[in-house]
Amino acid sequence: MSPANGNYEAVEQRIRELARAALEEGRVDYFIGWTTGYNESEVIPGFVRSADKVDDLVWNPLAAYNLTTFLKRKMPDPPQAKIGVAVKGCDSRTLVSLLQENLVDRERLYVVGVPCEGIVNRRAVSKVFANEVVKIEVAGDQINVTNQDGETKQLAREDYLLDHCRSCNYPNPRYFDDLAGEAVPEPEDQTPMWREIEEFEALPEKEKDRLMAEAFEKCIRCYACINACPVCYCWDNCVCRSRQPKLVGQKVNAQENLMFQMVHMFHVAGRCPSCGNCDRACPVEIPLYLLHRKMNKELKEMLDFEPGIDLEQKPVFQTFDVNDPFGQH
C-alpha cells in the first residue's frame, strides 16, 4: 500500500458536509459515521441524528469499524429508518454482499464512500506500552503513540497497518452514492496476496490442530464476532444458540467453541470479504481474520471468485455451474 497522503482532514470535512446535507434535506433519519471514543486512541461508530451534531464525525486511520453491521436486519431503530452510512473499500464489499441478497433496502440507504489508505492496527499499537495508550496519531508515514504518562513512541505506519490493509486491492468503495474526496490509486495488479496465512498453511496438521485448540480455548462465547459481522444476519435465530437442532453445545471448551466458529465461517462463506470486523471485536484476540482469509483464498482458487465485488453477481453458494472445475470424481 502506498504511503498515505494524509488527506484525512479534507475527507473528514467532506463526510460532514454530505452528512449535513442529507440530514437537513431529510433524506436520512440518521447518519452513521465514525467518532472519537473514550480517548483519542479509540475511534468508534458514531450515530448522528441532527445536522448540528455532524462535527462529531471524524475520519482518520483509526476508523476501523465496519459500519454496515448496523444495517443488518433488526439493527436499525426504528426499523423503517432511512439511514446514511459511511463505507470504506472493504465495508462497501460487505454492503455489496448484503445488497446481492436483498438483505438491505437500497431505497432507504444513502451511502457515502470513503477512499481509504489503510487502517492502523490499534491492537498492535496499544501493546507498545504496558500501561494505557491515550492517543494515537498518524502523521505521514509515522504513527505517534502516547501513553498515560505522556511518553510518546514513534512507529513506522507500514509496520502497524492491519493485515488486510497491507494487501488491500480495493481501497476505494465498490458501491456508494457520493464519494467523500478523491479516489485513491488502486494497485494495477489486483491478484490477491495471501502472505499472512502462508506461514500457518505450511505447518503440519498436528501443529495446526494444536494451535487451533490453543486459540479457541480462550474463546468466551460472547458472540461478539458474529454480532459484529456485517454479513452474519440471523440475529436471534442463529443455529449456534439453538437447542433443537443442537449443533453447538452449551459447554464452553475449545471443541464447542471451534464448532461455533465454524457455524459462522460456513455461513459467511462467499459473502465475507474478510473485513476483519469479527477479529477486532473479539475481546480475547482470537485471530479469526486468518480463518476467513483462508476461506477467501480457497474460493478464489476454486471459483475465481472474490466476495462483494460485483453487485449483479449471485452469491456463489446460491448458484452453481455444471462445469465447475472440481468434484468430477
Binding site: E205, K208, M262, F266, M302, F317, D321, H329
Partner: peptide, 28 residues
C-alpha cells in the same frame, strides 16, 4: 451441483483446522 461447491470448500478448509486430508472425501 450445489453440494459440490460446499463440499469442495469444506475439503479445502479441513487441513486448515488440523484434519489430515484422508479423513474426508466426497465422491459420486
Amino acid at each position: 451441483y450445489y453440494a459440490r461447491r460446499k463440499l469442495e470448500l469444506l475439503e479445502r478448509m479441513l487441513p486448515q483446522l488440523g484434519f489430515e486430508a484422508e479423513r474426508f472425501k466426497y465422491t459420486w
